[in-house]
Design a protein around this nucleic acid. Structure first.
Length: 777
DNA sequence: GGAGGCCTCGGAAGG
DNA sequence: CGAGGCCTCC
């Protein structure tokens, strides 16, 4: 390999790349080629004959890791596959599985996502008979999370007078106890939550010198992206891992730190300088992305922040157009103006839809934008929102998978023990919980205990043991069957697929398709042998030629939060997203909307200088996404929670040097507008946004329904029932949800009349005739 | 089991 | 306003 690639770098970038030994900090301004430097640096290490197995590269998102791996592969070829690269959580999860035994966890431990954590905390609060209005699961979990992220164990917490006093003062003295119970329950369930992946990683290398030594010598070179977003535990792990060689390179931009609200600490940048006195600092200040106007406007804004490092971002690019400021009379008009402007710019500059992005502070603002874009027949795509893996039907299936792999996973068990319905109701579940708490046993150990420890009646006992047998049957196949074969088997024999298949409502159809989509993804995983998550897998379970099992699949997706799109990139759509979601992206034309006081900056940021500064950095991130055209808009009134409110323009508009701004005179968007009608062809386009994982994340379902209603889609839902007054046993009927069936029995009078009907695939159901809309066949 | 009524609450979001 | 949670009722 030659080092010709170095010629593609400017002086500052080049210096940052070739200085490979010792601690390095790269302060990289927006659009200064940060990712480029990071990837070239890794390529350069490989060139210098550093073994890829000795390089650890950490990012915050799967997306960033994936992109970096691709780029390195392009420069460095296959050797890049052996890098340890991925998110903090993914890499540490991998290590924790290898080292699970030391921490007394089984290798097959489950990773709990925030929903699992919430559900577990909720049950604990209930079991403790605490008021869940006072002890809100999210609030308690936030407190626990903050503790873990600052390396306080539950014991530390209980011994910390300050924490105890704070909790007492806030009227929630039981938090310390809940912390302990939560940790113990996670362990009983053989589960770690997201914070545990970090906390336990630290614990591992802190308590086991052999483990520390092993990974210190494994990772001779450590690189960290988005360093400004690291929290205390992440920083502590990095410092320990790097202690042997001190070849640690961190890249970040203090001006783009927008996650302090969840524990990220910009001050890590300052601490880093203190911790490594011989630190070499490089500053990347030349911006390659944006026009002079945009770069200078951004500079004039961020100057208003007091907490920041010295850095002068500049560009050789053209001056470009001034930044347009639009004032609308309402949120709807704001949408119209933006849509109009996109329409015109597209024509005037011969641009594509995918050259445009609309960025907003809160998700709720997407509605007026969507409506306007639909009216103008401009295709768009919303990023963020309900992720594929967060959908109920997907979570149900994954819960079966999880249970097969780790039967102690009580959150998974509670989720599916009665899905589809198999007569194990609330009463039984309560008994399991109570007995479990009394005897400190997992629900699984209770339902597999034939001595009936919960004292349920014999038919329930039978149902429980049937369920346990079914799960055990799944577990037996884990090591032998491929992920796809077993997944299909589980979907079928659990009855999940059948239940979904019979649901012919549009939502039901969509759910069924999603399940098929999941199975397709698993098939692809098995057949291509390609990981969905980006980190390479030099450690475990990548034996070539070996069948890819469901366990491997679950490890692969455990830390995925949104379906990575990729193949949809060629779609020509306008991008809509929150400013947070736009971090790291760039577009030729950017609209930042809703620039009003109490919205952007958010109302909640106004009382605290630090919060306001974070809000300003957020706005800085927003405007530095733009390459050529930037438009800022605000409305003098908008609907908020059902009320029309008056709005003042954002202070941020005044903070940008006015020489870069240009007020666009309000022009009524209705005049001379060529396309304002609803276009029937479009509704299918809109509908598609809600489907499957192909779109990655999709639109909130509620919005889609309103779309369907609005354009008068032929009603699949409109299931008209017949008059059932003459219903008799033996008749064939059809039910909206359960499909066709035969009437077995009719009983009761008047409003109490109910029928027992045997449905194909659903068995006998008692239906109240007053309510069920039955079709007589 | 599920449909409907009532209440609550509303920030951005990585893994 | 609208989504989600909880309770009640048949």
């Amino acid at each position: 390999m030659n080092t010709k690639y170095l010629e593609e770098l400017n002086d500052a970038q080049n210096a940052a790349v070739i200085h490979t030994e010792g601690p390095v900090m790269i302060i990289a301004g927006a659009g200064s080629g940060k990712t480029r430097v990071l990837t070239y640096r890794i390529a350069h290490l490989l060139c210098m004959n550093v073994d890829a197995f000795h390089i650890l590269a950490l990012t915050f998102t799967n997306k960033a890791a994936k992109e970096m791996r691709n780029r390195i592969e392009r420069i460095a070829g296959n050797e890049a596959r052996n890098l340890w690269m991925g998110t903090f959580h993914a890499v540490f999860a991998k290590i924790l599985r290898i080292e699970a035994e030391r921490l007394l966890f089984p290798v097959n431990f489950t990773i709990y996502d925030t929903d699992d954590s919430r559900s577990l905390m909720k049950s604990i609060i209930r079991e403790q008979a605490l008021d869940d209005k006072l002890y809100k699961p999210e609030v308690i979990l936030n407190r626990i999370s903050a503790a873990k992220n600052n390396l306080y164990s539950w014991q530390d917490y209980q011994n910390n007078a300050q924490f105890i006093a704070d909790d007492y003062a806030s009227g929630k003295p039981k938090i310390a106890e809940l912390f302990e119970l939560y940790v113990k329950r996670c362990r009983r369930n053989s589960a770690m939550d997201f914070d545990d992946l970090l906390f336990n990683m630290y614990d591992l290398i802190n308590r086991f010198p052999e483990a520390l030594h092993k990974y210190q010598h494994k990772f001779k070179y450590i690189l960290v992206d988005e360093f400004q977003d690291t929290n205390f535990v992440q920083y502590s792990i990095l410092k320990k891992l790097a202690a042997a060689f001190e070849n640690i390179c961190v890249v970040g931009d203090d001006a783009q730190s927008i996650y302090a609200f969840r524990g990220a600490n910009i001050r890590n940048i300052l601490t880093f300088e203190k911790d490594y006195p011989d630190l070499k600092v490089f500053k990347l200040e030349q911006n390659y992305r944006s026009t002079k106007t945009i770069v200078n406007a951004a500079n004039s804004l961020i100057e208003k922040n007091k907490t920041r490092l010295k850095k002068e971002v500049w560009t050789h690019n053209e001056t470009g157009r001034k930044i347009s400021v639009l004032r609308a009379l309402s949120d709807n008009e704001e949408g119209m103006m933006v849509a109009n402007s996109i329409f015109e710019t597209r024509v005037n500059h011969q641009w594509h839809n995918h050259d445009f992005a609309i960025l907003y502070r809160t998700n709720a603002q997407s509605r007026s934008m969507e409506e306007a874009l639909r009216k103008m027949n401009i295709p768009y795509r919303i990023y963020g929102g309900l992720s594929f893996y967060k959908r109920k039907e997907i979570k149900d299936i994954l819960a079966y998978f999880r249970l097969a792999i780790n039967p102690d996973d009580e959150e998974a068990l509670k989720r599916v023990i009665n899905v589809p319905a198999r007569g194990i109701g609330k009463t039984t579940l309560d008994r399991l919980v109570v007995t479990g708490a009394e005897q400190d046993r997992s629900a699984w150990s209770l339902i597999t205990d034939s001595s009936n420890p919960c004292g349920v009646n014999s038919s329930t006992l039978q149902r429980l043991s049937d369920f346990a047998l079914m799960i055990q049957g799944f577990s037996l196949k884990l090591k032998t069957e491929s992920a796809y074969d077993l997944a299909t088997y589980i979907c079928t024999s659990s009855g999940l697929l059948r239940e979904l298949y019979h649901d012919k409502t549009p939502e039901g159809l969509s759910r069924y398709e999603n399940v098929q989509e999941l199975l397709n993804g698993i098939r692809e995983f098995v057949e291509t042998g390609r990981s969905i998550t980006p980190q390479g897998d030099p450690g475990i379970n990548q034996d070539e030629g070996q069948v890819r099992t469901l366990e491997m699949y679950m490890q692969d997706i455990a830390l995925l939060t949104d379906a990575d799109e990729g193949d949809e990139k060629n779609k020509d759509t306008v991008s809509l997203m929150t400013v947070h979601a736009a971090k790291g992206l760039e577009f030729p034309a950017v609209f930042v909307v809703g620039l009003e006081e109490n919205l952007f900056p958010s109302q909640l940021s106004l009382n605290d200088r630090e919060d306001l500064e974070e809000e300003r950095r957020l706005f800085y991130v927003a405007i530095t996404r733009a390459e050529k055209l930037l438009t800022l808009s605000w409305a003098t009134s908008r609907y908020r929670w059902g009320n029309l409110i008056n709005c003042e323009p954002s202070r941020f508009l005044e903070e940008i040097d006015p020489e870069f701004l240009e007020e666009v005179s309000p022009r009524h968007p209705h005049s001379g507008n060529p396309v304002l009608e609803d276009h029937p062809a479009e509704r299918w386009e809109s509908r598609k946004y809600d489907r499957g994982r192909g779109n990655g994340s999709s639109r909130p379902i509620g919005t889609t329904q309103s779309v369907l209603k609005k354009v008068n889609t032929p009603e699949v839902r409109n299931f008209t029932g017949d008059d059932t007054s003459h219903i008799q046993p033996g008749m064939q009927v059809e039910h909206e949800k359960f499909g066709k069936g035969k009437v077995l029995l009719v009983e009761g009078n008047a409003s109490d009349r109910k029928a027992t009907i045997c449905f194909n695939g659903f068995g006998n159901k008692q239906i109240l005739l007053k309510y069920a809309r039955l079709k007589m066949l």
